[in-house]
Design a protein around this nucleic acid. Structure first.
Length: 502
DNA sequence: AAAAAAT
């Protein structure tokens, strides 16, 4: 595995501009010539064309149709034909939208939001809120995951960045809860960062407007107010939180919050929250799972990336699991034009960055670096460039963090330097460029970072800086982390196992 | 490997 292969594996759908980055191409040629593989550079850059995958999907669907025919052999003519047609239609829909499902008794995908009202009793007001938000057609993940959750099925869902996962779990929650009830929280959503939690909270409030649900977020103020204690009036329905805050309240004696009425537990960015190790989220998440002790609790895990570890856990612990995958698993979103830029050294990064600024760029731009310290440093380098630049990371105060996010959303900040804090889930409208100033430490992180652009079918662009020093880093993580992500067929993913816990 | 996550 060399640097070239690595980038090939990172960048599904990547376009590499050889004229513009001729030097980089030469560089990779050099690297590549060390290999025995005789194939030439350009043919090597078949970025695992999506057409091949699509072909496989259709073929798979046809096989399913055939199976369906065999199964219905005992039936008489008319009914049999009707069932065959239905199976064909459903499989065609799945193939067309690259919906892959595994599990028993999977309900048909829905093709419109109004079907959700007629078939599953979605509140008409929510439907109205959807259309006033300009949402007309369900995305593939919504088509399949919503009916599943409406049937109360536990699931593991994997769909690309910016493809509508939030709505895919919010709609079923609202439908399932039917109306406000004073029973305490009946639905809980866990997110890895406060920024993502607050975004999800806002979405839920907007979506349920006029229905009367009490949607809460665990923030400093609500925790200080101690409003969820045993003596509270239980007049709340849905909670969104980061894990540790929740665990803090649960651990108090007596617990400052009860989750025994929770009927739906949604884990967003599930692979992140399953992260193990001394300071990982995993223990916190385990405590949350344990606290959601009601007999009727259902669980759904969502992410753009899925690791075998999480899948394994789901197979063992979830009831009659269904897993839904949209398109390639663990692949970069296809609407992002990806470029790799060799900049030689650290100083080369700064020069290239200044060059981008000097040449004129179309804001807003997100710039990812590897650590808080590096975020600070880069900010100090750029603050005098005459552009509106700011920086966000976990060491800034919540007030600063909130201000930065809102100024970036409003366009007052053109360039936002950030750490992994903003890598997942955050939905900025119209980020024109994601710059990986520091090379991401894993393919998974790369996928999430560049997924801040090219959202909801829009096009986006991502540039990744690359230096001499990054080479050993690349080799390490292709061995230990996500490897063979793509190019080996949709169901042939080897992610090396690190641990086998939980 | 780093970042985030409670007071």
């Amino acid at each position: 595995m060399d640097a070239f292969d690595l980038f090939r594996k990172l960048g599904a759908g990547a376009k590499f501009d050889f004229k513009r980055f001729g030097k980089d191409a030469d560089r990779f040629k050099g690297v590549r010539s060390e290999q025995k593989d005789g194939s030439d550079l350009l043919s090597g850059i078949d970025f695992f064309g999506t057409g091949i995958y699509h072909g496989n999907q259709v073929k798979l669907a046809e096989e399913q149709v055939e199976n369906g025919e065999e199964e219905s052999e005992g039936e008489s003519g008319k009914g049999k034909r009707k069932r065959q047609d239905e199976v064909k239609t459903v499989n065609r829909v799945r193939a067309q939208h690259r919906i892959n499902v595994h599990g028993c008794d999977v309900p048909d995908p829905v093709c419109t939001f109004s079907e959700l009202q007629s078939e599953y009793g979605l509140n008409p007001r929510v439907l109205q809120n959807l259309s006033s938000a300009g949402l007309t057609t369900p995305t593939p993940i919504q088509m399949q995951a919503i009916p599943l959750m409406m049937h109360g099925r536990e699931l593991l869902a994997c769909a690309p960045t910016g493809s509508g996962k939030t709505l895919a779990f919010c709609l079923p929650l609202l439908t399932h809860l039917k109306q406000p009830a004073n029973l305490g929280f009946r639905a809980l959503i866990i997110s890895p960062t406060r920024e993502l939690a607050s975004q999800t909270h806002r979405e839920l409030v907007r979506l349920s407007e006029g229905v009367g649900f009490r949607v809460h977020i665990l923030d400093k103020a609500s925790m200080a107010a101690k409003k969820y204690g045993p003596s509270s009036n239980k007049k709340y329905d849905i909670l969104v939180s980061t894990p540790n805050r929740l665990v803090f309240l649960l651990k108090q004696d007596p617990p400052a919050l009860h989750l025994s009425s929770v009927e739906w537990l949604v884990v967003d960015e599930s692979d992140k929250l399953f992260e193990d190790g001394r300071s990982g989220f995993r223990d916190q998440l385990a405590a949350v799972f344990q606290a959601c002790s009601g007999p009727r609790v259902r669980r759904a895990l969502y992410s753009a990336t899925c690791v075998p570890d999480v899948e394994q856990w789901c197979r063992i612990n979830l009831d009659n699991l269904v897993s839904v995958n949209i398109g390639h698993r663990n692949s970069a979103v296809e609407t992002v034009e990806q470029e790799l830029l060799f900049v030689g050294t650290e100083n080369g990064k700064l020069l290239a960055m200044r060059d981008i600024i000097k040449k004129g760029f179309l804001p807003p731009m997100l710039v990812f670096v590897q650590s808080i310290e590096r975020a600070r440093e880069l900010f100090h380098e750029l603050v005098y460039e005459g552009i509106n630049v700011d920086v966000i990371h976990a060491d800034r105060t919540q007030q600063q963090r909130d201000n930065v996010i809102s100024s970036f959303r409003s366009g007052d900040i053109w360039v936002l330097i950030c750490t992994a804090l903003l890598a997942r889930g955050i939905d900025f409208k119209g980020v024109n460029l994601v710059l990986n100033y520091d090379f991401p430490t894993s393919a998974v992180e790369y996928i999430h970072r560049i997924g801040r652009t090219g959202r909801a079918g829009h096009t986006g662009r991502a540039v990744t800086f690359f230096t001499e020093d990054d080479k050993p880093l690349l080799r390490r993580y292709t061995r230990g982390g996500a490897c063979g992500l793509m190019g080996e067929g949709p169901n042939n993913i080897h992610l090396k196992k690190k641990k086998d816990k939980l």
